[in-house]
């Protein structure tokens, strides 16, 4: 992880918290971001709160910030090259503090095509799996999952609804902020 990059994202995350833009709803949360950088900061927090076997399901339309969020998570997980959109490459693997698998199911026509991904192998590798366009996984989310629904409010603003689907994600924000400060 490049230290200045992580430091910038940590500061953005703290600002989102300080300005009350992270609104808790039980264990879940809603965040309003005003630029791609802030969406990346939320991803940074999720990356710091992640654990071996964690899965991030990023649902939202084109241009809503899924890849920005994934990139922030990648920084937190210490990957060397920034995560980029895997729409065409379908699956990319990076080495970080934990192995990071970045998938994009945009071009995948149906659940039967998922088999070609060796998804079970990926999910059971003890790494962190980030899935864009996870539509074929939403009906029965895998273990370790957290779901983020991203919505486009204005050209700059996005609403991120963070929903915990596995109890291991509970307290992720507090854990992330502790890890960031350490």
């Amino acid at each position: 992880m490049s230290a200045p990059e992580a430091e910038g994202l940590r500061a953005s995350l703290e600002r989102l918290v300080a300005e009350g833009r992270v609104v808790p709803a039980g264990a879940d949360a809603e965040v309003r971001t005003g630029c791609p950088r802030e969406t990346e900061a939320v991803g940074f927090g999720l990356g710091l709160g992640a654990f071996p076997g964690a899965v991030l399901l990023l649902e939202g339309p084109l241009g809503s910030g899924k890849t920005a969020l994934a990139r922030g998570a990648g920084v937190a997980l210490g990957v060397r090259d920034p995560l980029t959109s895997p729409t065409f490459t379908l699956l990319s693997e990076s080495a970080g503090r934990l192995p990071v698998f970045h998938l994009d199911l945009y071009r995948v026509a149906g659940p039967e095509e998922l088999r070609a991904f060796d998804l079970v192998e990926v999910l059971e590798s003890g790494g962190v799996t980030i899935v864009e366009w996870p539509r074929w996984l939403l009906a029965e989310p895998p273990g370790g999952a957290l779901r983020v629904d991203l919505a486009v409010l204005t050209p700059a603003e996005r609403r991120l609804q963070v929903r915990i689907l596995d109890p291991r994600w509970e307290g992720w924000l507090a854990r992330a902020r502790r890890n960031a400060a350490a």
Binding site: T67, A68, R71, D81, P82, T84, S85, T87, F88
Partner: peptide, 14 residues
């Protein structure tokens, strides 16, 4: 140099 997000061809396709 490299892209930080979408590839050029991907931008065209999207």
């Amino acid at each position: 140099g490299r892209t930080r997000d979408d590839a050029a061809g991907e931008a065209f396709d999207k």
